[in-house]
Computed example of a mutant assay.
Amino acid sequence: MVSINNKQFSMKRIDIKVKQNTTQIWKISNKDNMMGEIHPFHIHGVQFRLLSVNGNTPASNMQGRKDTIMTRPGNQYKIMIKFTQPGFFMYHCHNLEHEETGMMGQIQVVP
């Protein structure tokens, strides 16, 4: 079973609600202790900047705008994100088998 924040995807649930044009700092952790898998974390409709990996400055090739980052087991990533368009967006693991079995969530961006 795969999940994000201990929840499997549900079309009936909004997991995150954000105000349009506000800058947010998110912490993303890969707590996959069972399989030791890398999860490519992807967000629809926006690009973000990787601020840190385990509290350290990311490598130079990771400092540009991203829409996906590879999250390694046991690591914590801090990203800065700003949704400029209102609407509904998805975030998920970009491993097809994981997103198909519920490793994703919904964001609602409100004006």
Rank of each mutant, 00 (worst) to 15 (best):
S29W: 11
K7Y: 11
Q20D: 10
I28R: 02
S3Y: 12
Q20N: 11
L50T: 03
I14G: 06
K66Q: 15
K19Q: 14
Q76Y: 13
G74D: 07
M80T: 02
N75K: 07
N5A: 04
E37N: 06
H94F: 11
S60A: 07
V2P: 09
H98N: 11
T22V: 02
C93D: 15
I4M: 11
Q20W: 10
N95H: 09
G36L: 06
T101C: 05
T71L: 04
R72A: 03
M1N: 10
G64Q: 12
H44G: 11
P58G: 03
P58F: 02
M103A: 07
K12Y: 10
Q108T: 00
E99L: 04
K12I: 03
I79A: 04
T23M: 05
T101F: 09
A59K: 13
F83S: 01
K78Q: 14
M103H: 08
P73H: 10
I4D: 08
P86Q: 14
N21D: 15
T23I: 02
V46R: 01
K27S: 11
P86I: 03
H92F: 13
L51P: 04
T57Q: 14
I107G: 03
N6K: 08
V46F: 02
F89I: 00
G55E: 06
N5D: 14
I107W: 06
K19V: 04
I79Y: 05
M1D: 12
E37A: 07
G105E: 13
F88G: 03
L50M: 14
I107H: 07
Q8Y: 13
I25C: 01
F41T: 01
I28N: 03
N61Y: 15
N61W: 15
R65I: 00
H39Q: 08
F88M: 03
Q47C: 07
T71E: 15
R13D: 14
S10D: 15
K66G: 05
Y77A: 00
I14N: 13
Q20A: 05
F48G: 05
P58Y: 02
H44L: 06
V18M: 13
A59Q: 12
M35S: 06
I38D: 15
